[in-house]
Design a protein around this nucleic acid. Structure first.
Lengths: 209, 209, 209, 209
DNA sequence: TATGAATGAGCCTTCATTCAT
DNA sequence: AATGAATGAAGGCTCATTCAT
């Protein structure tokens, strides 16, 4: 077994390339980002990039993977903060929306590569996996805890993640191109809350009565 | 007077190019579609394409415009069918979802060019305009008729279009990469209905009592 | 014989094209002037230009011819003004220099097409003819009248035109790229006068004594 | 320490491109010489040319620079040979004329790019610099040594370089398109000598009396 | 492990030319 | 006599990829 901390120097460079790629792609977009751009963003030569990644396509796929991972971690953080169920759900909601609004580099790259994925089966697989994982996260975060919180829903719980994530992503997309005035934005958030709770029916909980 | 349909020959060719571009772009995506591809999809020479459109960028923008128009018309049709208010809303909802599910060429191109728009201000403007027009459509279709139907909402009506379209687009995006099993799909539709009506409060209507 | 003034309309258009070509070429230069440029400078379609001139090369040659003609007329004017021999020579000298300094469109085109002529035999012929005609003009203007003016030269009179025109053209070329300060410019003119008269020996003319 | 001659490989290739460009341009002229032509004259791919020079324009400018340098060196050689002042001036004169008559590749390219310079400011700057340097050369070669040779001139010495170079260049231009018969050529040379010495006044030099 | 040099395919664009009308 | 439409051949340039070092 390799000694801890003794990652090959190569592994470090690899990460540098990936991060540089995210930067470059988030700025110029897939269609206008060349290996050269990525290389110089990473402070290396084109040759070096090709030493780490067999082809541009392979690099792109790993970038997608990387972004998906980063985003998942970010979202996990949004869920991990403690609190009352009611609060927690609202806060998670609001944080997930916020995550989408600030449009960090990874999110932009993700959006861009999704479009690529429309036409490239390889990316599709990665994307499907990512979506599944995201839903799974929401499921763990909310759905699985509903019963033990004494909450029942008017709709089958298993579709909640899809509904929630889909709606949030779509709203974020629209916001990007056509940002609402701040007061509308707040109304949308409030509406989301109304919606979410309209789906819930809190059982009379004897232990609380 | 010029006979109907006898637009200048050039205008016909222009449309052919636009339609060919939609076809080509929907198949291969912006990044992998060359002017050459479009030209041969249109059965013309590259030169001819450049005779009608000054540059690839200009062509792309007109394609975006074209797709936006086509989609708007399609959506309008979804709204135009007659019926009872209740029915009509449900049906519009379901048709809008369907429009997004069949992922026709225009929709794919739209999605692709949205990603381009992340990095190209010119497209952003067109996209913003498109989004506004779409919301306007929904506003006309639903929102403006709510009062006269004796319906009040728990949320400000003006945010309904953004909420509805955002959610539908987001769900469609997820569906594309990670299609739900049919039974989930139905549940999602049902959930949407629940949600929509949970936002409404039908006033006691004396004429019906 | 054709009635006066009834030139074919075509002939008028031809001239328009030629003049437009001079304008266009003088502004952008041979290498960057397209048939399109010329056509729109002439307010016509490309097709029309090709109706009048079989090919771009043919057009260019006729332009060269045209410019040569215009220049010859301009130079003739410089010679035609009357006066004392001594005056006349000085004035002609100064006018020829001025003609070259103002760098009118025709002159610029001429210079440009000379460079083309370095590589295109067809133009060379036209240019040779032009140069010969120019020398002939000078010969008529000065050389042939020397004896009757009682002037003898220290050099064979037949080389005077070549010497004079060559020097003037060369000076003009240098001036274009690297214009002298005005005081140097005057000195150059004065030097030219010194030179010219240093080549002359006025015979003692008994009829004037 | 790097062995002499072991410039980076890139530098060698760069020079090859420059020399190939001179060859190609001197044969076909600016307007008809493509990067492809230059590349194959250099035995490389188009890509390689663009690896060394960012654009055709940049390459052309460097070619101009290169030619100007080569010509200056050639002229310097003409000045450097030793001899009596009188001889030296005559010989320099004759060699400068000869340099212009053989119309080597560099000279042709220079002439061609001068025409380009009529319309391209960037080249103008380079050309101006070149002209200044050439005049400086003549100034050093002749003008500055006049006083110490006991020679005074009837015209301000500072305009001599401009006059001399201008005249030589102009004569060469005419000669190219309309070469004189050999006997006229000799007469022209003789005339130049007459002229030059007519501008000089040799002071009575006591050491020679 | 990484680089600099080079390649070659392909891209967008320009343009002289042709031709039906 | 003139035009608008279209073509096809380059042209300049970019870029993923390869390879010797």
């Amino acid at each position: 077994m390799r000694a801890r901390g003794s990652y090959k120097k190569s592994e470090v460079s690899r990460q540098q390339v990936l991060e540089a790629a995210v930067r470059a792609l988030s700025e110029r977009g897939y269609a206008r980002t060349s290996v050269s751009d990525i290389a110089s963003a990473a402070g290396m030569s084109k040759g070096a990039v090709h030493y780490h990644f067999e082809s541009k396509d392979e690099l792109i796929e790993q970038v997608l993977q990387h972004c998906a991972d980063v985003m998942r971690e970010r979202v996990r953080d949004a869920w991990d903060a403690p609190g009352e169920p009611h609060e927690r759900i609202l806060r998670a909601l609001s944080e997930m929306r916020a995550t989408r609004k600030d449009a960090g580099p990874e999110l932009r790259v993700l959006a861009d590569l999704m479009a690529q994925g429309l036409h490239e089966p390889k990316l599709q697989l990665t994307l499907r996996t990512m979506f599944e994982a995201n839903r799974q996260q929401v499921a763990e975060g909310i759905v699985e805890s509903l019963p033990q919180l004494g909450i029942r829903t008017k709709i089958p719980p298993r579709v909640i993640p899809r509904l929630l994530l889909g709606a949030l992503d779509g709203l974020a997309l629209h916001d990007f191109f056509d940002p609402p005035p701040p007061e509308d934005d707040e109304e949308v958030m409030r509406a989301l809350e109304v919606i979410v709770f309209s789906l819930f029916e809190v059982e009379r909980d004897p232990s609380r009565s």
